[in-house]
Design a protein around this nucleic acid. Structure first.
Lengths: 169, 169
DNA sequence: TAGTTTGTTCGGAACGTTCCGAACGCTTAG
DNA sequence: CTAAGCGTTCGGAACGTTCCGAACAAACTA
């Protein structure tokens, strides 16, 4: 059986490759392994051994990416944080924008190379492939949602939302 | 109509986010916009204004990633480079390994959190979703190959291979 | 054989990024 | 009103990465 801290560090390495900073990535690990009690900034700071300024930046980064939700329980003096309900859906859809970006890049290339046949064929292939992916990948996500909703019969995606720490407005 | 050099720089930015170094990414741009004549290391160095040492490292990086093929035309004194036939398929499949890596990460988390219900549910969701993607995405690639092969009726994917500079052993 | 060209490897410099500590504004409790 | 806690912002330091120039090894030419 592995250690939780080990997992947090692994998560730090993995999520870093998604474009997050190291601390933000480690925060993702903490929130994934969260065992129920609320996560707040001072707690995360002590747990990860980082300055609260870095934590502030990291949490903002995560919040703006839609990966983490910030909420303040009534009468509480500090913010609390949890994973967004559709973190992974969000992550995939962010990745997806890459597809359209590459299709657009190919388009730019096409208008740059003029009418040279082999170059055009290459870039058209690239454009068509990424366009195909941008068109088909969302369907895959939908199929996942359906499969998950139908399979469990339970509530819609986002089971973690109905945890013991629900104090959102 | 955009400029070719602009396109190369755009490609540099885009491919950099795939984990390549900046120079390697710009080389990708050059090879994508290649107008037929062979690309060799000295030529790329001058075109991009980088040292040949950097070029050597970048080309190795691309070659080991399977994105670029190196070949030496008979009686030639320098190596030549071109995009691999299935560059984008290769790129997608590389990306795909990320899916299984994240599924494994979730597994690690599961063995770390023990039996806490909400944490387990979260991590099982993560594991199942990435496993689903790792299972279904290859099918998407296959569908693309079929669609492309059936649509054109032409040769199998990799039309750029039969260009005017075919001197591979 | 001597000379040229190509490609690789290595150490050091330059660059960008991330992180920390300090200062500030804001809210709440006493 | 004072004091304490939380969150944000900023400048500077530390880190890792990338790149360049020089030295080297190998292949070919004359």
């Amino acid at each position: 059986m592995a250690d939780v801290e080990e997992f947090v560090e692994s998560a730090g390495l993995h999520f870093e490759r998604l474009g997050l900073s190291r601390t933000a990535a480690r925060v993702m690990g903490c929130l994934l392994a969260e065992t129920g009690e609320a996560a707040d900034a001072p707690g995360l700071c002590e747990r990860l051994g980082v300055a609260k300024s870095s934590m502030s930046v990291a949490l903002h980064q995560l919040e703006r990416g839609g990966l983490v939700e910030r909420y303040r329980p009534p009468r509480a003096r500090r913010d609390h944080y949890r994973l967004a309900e559709d973190v992974f859906g969000r992550a995939f859809r962010t990745k997806m924008t890459e597809f359209t970006a590459f299709a657009a890049l190919a388009e730019q290339g096409l208008s740059a190379v003029g009418d040279h046949p082999t170059a055009r064929a290459r870039l058209e292939h690239m454009r068509d492939m990424y366009a195909f992916m941008a068109r088909e990948f969302p369907k895959l996500l939908d199929r996942w949602d359906e499969e998950r909703a139908g399979g469990t019969g339970g509530p819609a995606p986002g089971s973690a939302a109905s945890g013991p720490l629900d104090g959102r407005p």
